[in-house]
Design a binder for these strands. Sequence first.
DNA 1: TTGTAGGCGTTATCAG
DNA 2: CTGATAACGCCTACAA
Lengths: 336, 336
Amino acid sequence: MTTIKDIAQAVGVSCTTVSNVINGRSGRVSADTILRINETIEMLGYVPNMSARSLVSSSSRVIGVISHLAPHKNESIVEDPFHSAFIGSIERTLSENGYYLMLRTVETTAELVAFLRNWNVDGLFFTGVFQDEFFQALSELSIPIVLIDSYVSHSNMCNVGLEDYKGGYTATRYLIEQGHKDIAFASPTIRERGVVYERFLGYKNALAEASLPFRPELVFEQELDLNSTVSLGRKLAKRNDFTAVFATADIMAAGIMAGIHEAGKKVPDDISVIGFDDINLCQLTSPKLTTIHQDAPLKGKLAVNFLMNLLENKKIEEREVILPISLVERNSVKKI
Amino acid sequence: MTTIKDIAQAVGVSCTTVSNVINGRSGRVSADTILRINETIEMLGYVPNMSARSLVSSSSRVIGVISHLAPHKNESIVEDPFHSAFIGSIERTLSENGYYLMLRTVETTAELVAFLRNWNVDGLFFTGVFQDEFFQALSELSIPIVLIDSYVSHSNMCNVGLEDYKGGYTATRYLIEQGHKDIAFASPTIRERGVVYERFLGYKNALAEASLPFRPELVFEQELDLNSTVSLGRKLAKRNDFTAVFATADIMAAGIMAGIHEAGKKVPDDISVIGFDDINLCQLTSPKLTTIHQDAPLKGKLAVNFLMNLLENKKIEEREVILPISLVERNSVKKI
DNA sequence: TTGTAGGCGTTATCAG
DNA sequence: CTGATAACGCCTACAA
């Protein structure tokens, strides 16, 4: 393994000089020396040892992408098609900026803290944080953190979020405009101050605004895995007390549609369905899924921007970006 | 930050002793000392500094998951729903075994080698390697490598693969048994010694075995992104010289189905479609997609097993596992 | 059973 | 402009 020392010897200078060149402190070194050093670096194929750097500088250029998992749940952030879409985007931008991405699933705050110290992690991405003990732990951390889709805030964090409330409102409002009066709501567990909660509020307010009653019996909380959503669809197909469903995720909406079809009913003729996210899947179901669009790659890009600014101690005027949503009309909602 | 030294001082022993305890060399330390040290570690919240360890041991417990990207192509391994399914599985198992996962997209072998040296990467996962310059570079590396879905082999690598040939054969054979005689083949670029190539061979041989002619004009190579596959579907719908399509990936099959439907034809009445992978999506399209099943999470698990054995220098009888495929009949193929 | 000392590759400080 | 030297946290001979 080629080290800085090897370079120094080959060129006939000291380690310090080599280090200075590598770190761009060119003011202190003669142009000629710089050239020779760079040539030798090229020739010998020198690559910096990040461990050594990290050791001496207490910082590592490692960015953690944390998937906070409830114990014993068998899913991960990457398995969610929506999230995996911007992990890719994050990795590339990070990489372009000279950072490295570690993926880590943690269950407890202790695990998280250990991980951070293990590697002198420089920054963190976190999705879907709630106002709980976990958030407490996060806010006590001294490294830059970028939250994604989180309705909590703290002075040393940034957040890139979405118009979730408006999304819920828009979806419901659209259904109402299409003549629906009895609208079911399907989502994973609704937790206070979470993304789903906001969409839920939007749903309720759209109802209220149209003087439609909110009917708790039409709220269905369910896991997002295939089996659960499909069987929810079957269950919904058996009922006759509503004409449309708003699902807070496309994968859920698609599962519900499949279940409805299995039960021998039709979307949108018997039941209308609207989703949320606008992932590719929406264009692969039939009927194609009407949904609320959000820009996942952009979310990733903005998140990385935030983190970069935080890491470089740049002034940040706004610590939060809220991305807009928009309605994408396809064919899963019927006008009645 | 608590170090080994702090522990040593607190307990009143030397660093060596603490180190011995941490690394389980309990033979050399008295039971009492071990206890006191462990208590103090707990109390002070000591966490090992991996950079320091890595520096002194030239090994880091970092495992790289490499996404080998053609330059300027805007996709990543995590964006493929099939691959992301087992990255999750990999991360968890790795984590349970005390390893860390770095995700990295590389375009050139130089980038890859730099990355490995930067972090003293201990092992590597790699998907879809071909017999090319990149493979050359890999085989000269001295660290354990586990290939996934690769038809190349080398003494210091393991491979977890799939019965791709059989999959291609089975899919085609099934279509033939259902009475189809003119069968199109849709896939991304067919590269020699690649997964797709094997499936293609299976397709051709099934045709030959049934004395059906191989018609090159029915082979469609296309990118896997949504737009490409859907437009391929539209294109296929316009032709009348075949009755069924075998697509080598479910996302492709689903896109093709969508395109066919857009063009006003029906699956399976006008054109039958069979896919490959059996991802969740298959159960969300209508008709549901008949496909060749493979077990993605198992693939991940086996890959990690291989790597663990390699890392621990265990004897490995077989350096390769080929997972079985099976046909899953749903509703996208018509008997004619 | 425990301790001492040297070194892993890099950076930073300070002197020349 | 350049070079010693110490330090980061940990491990491993070797010594006691």
